[in-house]
Each structure stands twice: as structure tokens, then as C-alpha cells.
Amino acid sequence: MATYSTNEFKSGLKIMLDGDPYAIVENEFVKPGKGQAFNRVKVRNLKTGRVIDKTFKSGESVEAADVMDVDMQYLYSDGEFWHFMVPDTFEQYAAGEAAVTDARPWLKEQDICTVTLWNNSPLSVLPPNFVELRIVETDPGIRGDTATGGTKPATLETGAVVKVPLFIEEGEIIKIDTRTGQYVSRVK
């Protein structure tokens, strides 16, 4: 069984707590000059997404979560499951709704996503940092207005709504930063 010492704690590390896999979000070292040191961490439950605080005595060990990030191609959704495939091996995985909650607005067929597997089943899905999606609905563009910096809402083919500059037209394909949910540029 792999373990991590509190010395190795850093954001992103995956550990087991009370039977659930967690990712460390934040790690703060607390120590009185003449006393026991502690690591005060914020951890995110990878099943529920809930963030909790936990304090560990520095120097203690914690069980590592058998969590693996694998790049997979998004194939399709049948409404109940979202299906992914490892391109090299053609191995397929079905992710439930909880696993795709955050990624859903950005999932486009054939895009390569990072799927987090816990004990070999999908726990969460991270979309690519940038996706290109078609606008299916937005107010008509204001021709020539590229300078005022105003924005309007636009609905994408996945159903996500993002703010776009006023000159963007319905039917155009735009590039989005999925980490911020912000419009980056228009795609020719």
C-alpha cells in the first residue's frame, strides 16, 4: 500500500480518507517554535466534490489513493453514461453523470479529455484546456464593433452559455478556455 508523508503534501496529491479518495487543494504548514508541527489541509472529495478541512500531525503518513489520470477520447453520451476510449488500446470506459458534471458544458465528441480513474472506474473528467465550439444562438452581431469591449451571451452546441464580444455571429466557431469558461478567440 502506497503512502505519502505530510512532507510530500502539495496541491493535487490524491489521498484516501475514511474510505474515499480526496485531492489536496491547499496545504498550510503550522508550527509553534517549540512544539508539534501540523499540516492543515483543504481536501476535495473526488466522489462528491465537497471540500473539507483536515489537520494532520506533520510526519504522519496517509494512504495514497489509487487514482490515475488517463487521456481518453470522448465518444458519445447515451443520456445515462458518457463513453470514453483510450486511443492506443481502444479500451472503453463509461462515466456516470456525477463524474462529468463539471466537464459537461465543454464535452465535444472526439476531443481528448483527462479521465481520472479510481480503482479503474471513472471518477471525474477534465476537458481539454481549450475547446472549439459552434454558437447555436446569440443576438445578431454589431458589424465593425471590435473596440468597445462590450459582451453578449451566446449559447453553444453543448448547451453552455458564454459571454462573447458583440461582433460574433450565430453559427461561428469560437475557442473557449475551459478553466475559466471564457471566450478566447474566434476560429476561422
Binding site: V30, K31, P32, G35, Q36, F38, R40, I52, D53, K54, T55, F56, K57, E60, V62
Partner: peptide, 21 residues
């Protein structure tokens, strides 16, 4: 006080933690 602590903790560990937190 809402502290979630991974035990084991002895008496002086608790004092150190309560004092700083």
C-alpha cells in the same frame, strides 16, 4: 471548535494545536 484532526494525538499535541488554531 470544528477541528477535523487525524489522530493519534497526545495531550501536548492537542495543547499545541488548540493554542495555535
Amino acid at each position: 471548535q470544528g477541528l477535523e484532526v487525524a489522530e493519534p494525538m497526545n495531550r501536548s499535541d492537542w495543547l499545541d494545536l488548540l493554542f495555535s488554531e
